[in-house]
């Protein structure tokens, strides 16, 4: 029996390999050989391209209250990340209205950045070593920590109550999945395409808690008062602005913009507007 299933799976593997060879033959005939379309033909830097174009194309979340949320009432996208985008446009282009926003999700933001759809990602994105291999990051622009959102009255009051029997909701491509799997080995994690889907699923009772950065969770709790954030944050999630790998001049321009925002007090204003308190200085 065992032998047979092994034989079957190796037959399957052979099938997969041959079909794949066919598929890639089809796509490569049309595709040319250049591995990355954007960087080779763009001898000029991304920063020059932005200045020439006159607009900053920024990937932001549309589903994350406080950071980037599309408000059905006004049709506008609003939040901390959006204000940062406008402030950086002012710093780089001299006009804060020269921003084009594009919706990203945790799953789509790195591909979209690498494909050149957007100049930068300002979308609650934690700086990690693994991601640094894919993209470049600015300095930290927001300090978050991972936490848990539960229905009020839940038996879960912190990370210590999470066991292998707990079902946790998260968003595909988020660091919070690795963190919670490391903290609670064997915990069941259900991953959704974006936070709205995950929150919808939590509300439908499909799991016990939703995990991601506390800042995002506070936004959800503000959206629906039947839900609350519990326990102390159990990880450090420093947010950075992601920029395509190798675009050092753009990273420098963004870092300079961030430093200016902090020194002239504008950063504190934006922080207070969305988070409701002064940022902790470290």
């Amino acid at each position: 029996m065992k032998k047979r299933s092994k034989k079957m799976s190796s037959a399957l593997l052979a099938g997969i390999v041959s079909v794949t060879a066919l598929l890639s033959a089809c796509t490569s005939t049309g595709g040319g050989t250049s591995a990355s379309g954007g960087s080779t033909d763009a001898a000029a830097s991304q920063l020059d391209a932005i200045k020439e174009r006159g607009t900053l194309v920024v990937g932001v979340k549309y589903d994350t209250k406080l950071f980037g949320l599309k408000d059905p009432a006004s049709g506008d996208v609003e939040g901390f990340d959006i204000d940062m985008a406008h402030a950086l446009a002012k710093s780089i282009l001299g006009d804060e209205s020269k921003v084009e926003l594009k919706e990203v999700t945790s799953k789509t933001r790195i591909p979209m950045l690498n494909n050149g759809d957007i100049d930068m990602v300002i979308a609650t994105m934690t700086i990690t070593d693994a991601r640094k291999k894919e993209v470049d990051f600015s300095d930290v622009y927001f300090q978050a920590g991972q936490s848990l959102l539960v229905k009020k009255g839940s038996s879960i009051t912190g990370i210590d109550d999470v066991t292998a029997d707990t079902t946790i909701m998260a968003a595909k491509g988020a660091t919070s999945i690795d963190n919670i799997e490391a903290k609670v080995p064997g915990v069941k994690v259900l991953q959704f395409d974006n936070y709205q889907d995950a929150f919808n699923a939590l509300k439908a009772g499909q799991g016990d808690a939703l995990t991601t950065d506390d800042a995002i969770l506070y936004g959800m709790a503000a959206q629906d008062p039947n839900y609350e954030v519990v326990g102390e944050p159990f990880s450090d999630e420093p947010y950075g602005i992601a920029i395509k790998k190798g675009e050092t001049t753009l990273v420098e321009a963004v870092n300079k913009g961030l430093a200016d925002l902090k020194s002239d007090g504008q950063y504190n204003e934006i922080y207070k507007k969305w988070i409701g308190k002064e940022p902790v200085t470290n």
Partner: peptide, 14 residues
């Protein structure tokens, strides 16, 4: 089409 084809040089808006 949205996310794999750009890796071989075809780009699309959403």
């Amino acid at each position: 089409i949205q996310f794999a084809l750009p890796e071989i040089g075809f780009k699309f808006t959403v």
